[in-house]
């Protein structure tokens, strides 16, 4: 039990460390005063932009300190909805096991972050802060952002290859756990994918709706 906890803890540390590296790379390469000037020069004076940039730099530690909380919350959220799904199937699977597969599957998002960094470095001209806000291989990338209502930018960005890969990896990891818990009646990958779609899919739908709700009510 203690070994299992240690493994998970180490895995979580590695995951968070990778996110830190990606975040650091993005800030180091693209968080410059020039990008701020190009973004806001039509609306703000140069001295105000420089002040804004300094203020943003001063509070940069906040983004680093929130990163582990965000990652941990996301894993807990996925595990929770998987647990609800498992609860409906009468299978005997512990929350800790689901936490572990959600933790492993989260490495898919690291790949997504890496892909974004590669695109930004080699394939995309970054002039403004808006250029940094995109999700590679998503439906949103096929559309002209100016023609899409801001309310639909997040849901359309979420429809991407990496999100699909997350579903598939989660189902692949879950099938192993299900068959371990239910040795007499092993299930196939398709059944596990159905369970992931119904459980984690519901959680994702709920999350998207919450984000849309906040977007609309923010102003």
């Amino acid at each position: 039990m203690s070994n299992l906890f240690n493994n998970k803890f180490k895995l979580l540390l590695v995951l968070i460390a990778l996110y830190f590296l990606l975040h650091f790379a993005l800030i180091y390469l693209f968080d410059t005063v020039d990008i701020y000037i190009q973004t806001f020069q039509n609306q703000l004076s140069i001295n105000r932009i420089e002040k804004l940039f300094k203020l943003s730099n001063k509070h940069q530690w906040l983004s680093y300190s929130f990163l582990p909380i965000i990652v941990f919350s996301r894993i807990i959220y996925s595990s929770l909805f998987l647990y609800i799904g498992v609860f409906f199937t009468e299978l005997k699977i512990k929350f800790a096991q689901l936490f572990k597969i959600a933790l492993i599957a989260d490495f898919v998002y690291v790949l997504a972050g890496l892909a974004k960094l590669v695109v930004l470095i080699f394939f995309k001209q970054v002039n403004t802060l808006e250029d940094l806000q995109f999700q590679p291989l998503s439906i949103m990338e096929l559309l002209n952002e100016k023609t899409v209502d801001p309310l639909f930018v997040y849901p359309l960005s979420l429809l991407n290859v990496f999100e699909l890969a997350y579903f598939l990896v989660l189902a692949w990891l879950l099938v192993g756990i299900i068959n371990e818990a239910n040795k007499e009646h092993p299930v196939k990958y398709g059944k596990s994918l159905q369970l992931v779609t119904a459980s984690y899919g519901s959680g994702l739908l709920l999350w998207v709706l919450v984000v849309m709700f906040i977007t609309l009510n923010l102003n």
Binding site: I84, F87, F88, L151, S202, L205, L206, L209, V210, M212, F213, L216, N217
Partner: peptide, 28 residues
Amino acid sequence: IVKYLIIVIIGFTVGFLIVHIINRYGEK
């Protein structure tokens, strides 16, 4: 009972959010 309760809570939340989003979006 717990199963029904989960379905009701999630269903109600999703329903509430969808109705609110549609109304607010229309107003906007």
